[in-house]
Design a protein around this nucleic acid. Structure first.
Ligand code: FES
Ligand code: FES
Lengths: 146, 146
DNA sequence: ATTATAAAAGATATTTTTATCTTTTATTAA
DNA sequence: TTAATAAAAGATAAAAATATCTTTTATAAT
């Protein structure tokens, strides 16, 4: 569905949202452990998200990642778009050049609806809306949550 | 959504279904042109589908690919499973080790429904059901259909 | 000012996916 | 039975995704 990079990205942002909700900053080490991803790889991904304004960061001691008020309101769709691009939202399910009504692939009509539902889900879901569930361990960002 | 390999695979099988419906066999060259895919690459993919019994083939002059009565009844889900595996049907949208009710990721409930709808679509869709649409150019398997 | 810290940036490596090329095998037609 | 045809099989290559390592820059604490 999403690239691995994108999966990491979403999980990282949700983790930052939860861990920084009281003004703390979150280190790459903490994120890497918190979502069970390779440390250097998630660092690269966050660099990219930071450039695109989806997360904020500060260097140096007491530094780390956090979310501005604006970033807290971003949707999962924004993250997916930043990492994987538009393809999943607008592309043809069978990979013919373009998805269009004029020259539809065989599954166009059904696929379009599913694609739309996926988009709606991601669009309506904001990155800060799971803070409590995550804290209360009703939702998880990695397999082994000990 | 699907790997490029899987997209080619589905398009190839739909193409074979349509082109072989009157008992003809379809060559790799024809398939490659018909779905706009690299010739050697689609050859490899069809080899795999052939091994798994999703398409039939015969070597030599007048040889080519075709579908047995059984293969005509296969679903798109069968093809996806053969090429991309189960992940898209059962895996977690955020890529945590496993999708489970006990340790759900934040989007588990919504994602599960979309995943299910996708599966249902692919499961109910049989490879021979587009023959007429394809023939009448009401559906397409490549961008430039001239 | 100096040192320690942590992210940014840049370089490199590995793995997987996608694609191509060559040789072999099966089948048919002549 | 020979030659031609077309897929199967195997080997290799190129590109993209994933992962790691090193150096630099910004910031804060001392
Ligand atoms: S053309 Fe394939 S999904 Fe629209
Ligand atoms: S745990 Fe993520 S989709 Fe089920």
């Amino acid at each position: 569905m999403f690239s691995k990079t994108c999966e990491y990205a979403i999980r990282a942002v949700l983790y930052i949202a939860q861990m920084s909700k009281n003004g703390d900053k979150v280190s790459i080490k903490s994120i890497s452990k918190g979502i069970d991803s390779p440390e250097h790889f998630i660092a690269k991904i966050l660099q990219e998200l930071s450039k695109k304004g989806l997360v904020q960061s500060l260097k140096g001691p007491t530094g780390g990642f956090y979310l501005s008020e604006q970033s807290k309101k971003h949707s999962l769709a924004d993250i997916v778009r930043a990492i994987d691009g538009e393809k999943i939202f607008t592309g043809c399910g069978l990979g013919i050049g373009q998805c269009s009504e004029e020259f539809p692939c065989p599954i166009h009509n059904d696929f379009k609806m599913i694609r739309k539902k996926l988009f709606d889900l991601l669009q309506k879901t904001k990155v800060n809306e799971f803070n409590n569930q995550l804290e209360m361990q009703l939702a998880f960002l990695k397999k082994n949550h000990n």
